[in-house]
């Protein structure tokens, strides 16, 4: 597998009069929030690879927004190290940091962060303008981006003349204008109403499929995380409780806290056949296999109608990779613990 694009080692972020001192004290066992200090990110280590999407999930105040701002160095970390393609971003000069952002990074914000005095088109063109791109080229590029998010008709509008969903499409178009390799999304759909949110999630999945990026997506909505993520990192009080695939989080919550989240989830919709397989170990299983990428919910009818105890599971290329215990799958389907 390729090297991680973003690597984050033992990152701490504290706010207060003496953040560094406070972090040392906490590492030594002192309470988290004392003397006017707040620890927002606590000893976080994670990696994100190209083409991978990491969803950071946590309730408000869990430090997830701070974490993403550390990753983009909108704020400096108090301790630990963040590297992007092997480069320590904490050590970058102002100029190099700006260059890095101009070349590689895009970010989408919860309340859009659009410039009120510029039209939609000018907003999308803004990163290109900062990059010093010539006017004609950047307008053309911005138009193409608006086309991509379905707002070509609205290019002369001002942000306040658009609905929330449309504004966020502008935010997305702007973040993608420079073809970033790294894409940060900070609760991009939280400010939208549920119907629009669903629509935007679909739109997002479509855009995501268009090119291989390293994506860090922040949300407080567990369902959204399950729906979109390759991997999910669940945060509490600044620390990551568990960082794993959706299946593993649901099937094997690492902590009590994570378990509470997963309790209300309809597992059948989350867990894939591939996550339940047992190795074959030479046992012969017969009959047509099911696809490992299908969720149990999708396979429900077949599971009920099938009468085999073990059902073969094949990966995307059609090779059988293991077998699914039908009883375990049915238990999961009707909501009993496997």
């Amino acid at each position: 597998m390729a090297d991680p694009v973003i690597r984050c080692r033992n990152v701490w972020k504290a706010f207060g009069p003496d953040p560094a001192g406070h972090v040392r004290a906490v590492e030594g066992g002192a309470p988290l929030n004392a003397d006017g200090h707040v620890v927002a990110v606590r000893d976080v280590s994670l990696e994100v690879r190209r083409g991978e999407m990491l969803v950071v999930m946590g309730l408000s105040g869990s430090g997830k927004s701070t974490l993403v701002r550390c990753l983009s160095r909108l704020i400096d970390v108090t301790g630990g190290q963040i590297t992007i393609e092997g480069q320590d971003i904490g050590a970058l000069s102002e100029r190099d940091l700006i260059a890095l952002r101009r070349r590689k990074m895009g970010m989408v914000f919860q309340s859009f962060g659009l410039l009120p005095n510029r039209t939609v088109l000018e907003n999308v063109a803004f990163p290109l303008e900062m990059r010093g791109q010539e006017r004609g080229a950047r307008i053309a590029r911005a138009r193409a981006m608006l086309e991509l998010v379905g707002l070509a008709e609205r290019e002369d509008y001002y942000p306040r003349e658009l609905s929330g969903g449309q504004q966020q499409r502008v935010g997305i178009a702007r973040s993608l204008a420079i073809e970033p390799e790294i894409w940060f999304l900070d609760e991009p759909f939280s400010a939208l109403d549920p119907l629009i949110r669903k629509e935007m999630q679909d739109e997002f999945l479509r855009l995501k499929a268009l090119s291989e990026r390293a994506i860090v997506f922040i949300t407080h909505d567990f369902d959204e995380a399950l729906r979109l993520a390759d991997r999910i990192a669940i945060m509490k009080d600044g620390a990551i409780e568990q960082c794993d695939t959706a299946d593993r989080i649901v099937l094997d919550p690492a902590t009590e806290y994570v378990a509470r989240f997963t309790a209300g989830v309809d597992r059948a919709r989350v867990v894939h056949a591939g996550a339940l397989i047992q190795p074959l170990n030479g046992v012969a299983v017969e009959g047509p296999p099911v696809a490992s990428g299908d969720t149990i919910r999708v396979l429900a009818r077949r599971l009920i109608e099938d009468e085999r105890g073990l059902i073969p599971v094949a990966d995307a290329s059609g090779r059988v990779v293991g077998a699914l215990q039908r009883k375990a799958a049915l238990d999961l389907l009707v909501g009993e613990a496997p």
Binding site: I98, M105, M107, F109, G113, L115, P127
Partner: peptide
């Protein structure tokens, strides 16, 4: 967020 968006745009 507007300022951050500006920063992330490489301003």
């Amino acid at each position: 967020e507007v300022v951050e968006a500006g920063k992330m745009s490489g301003a």
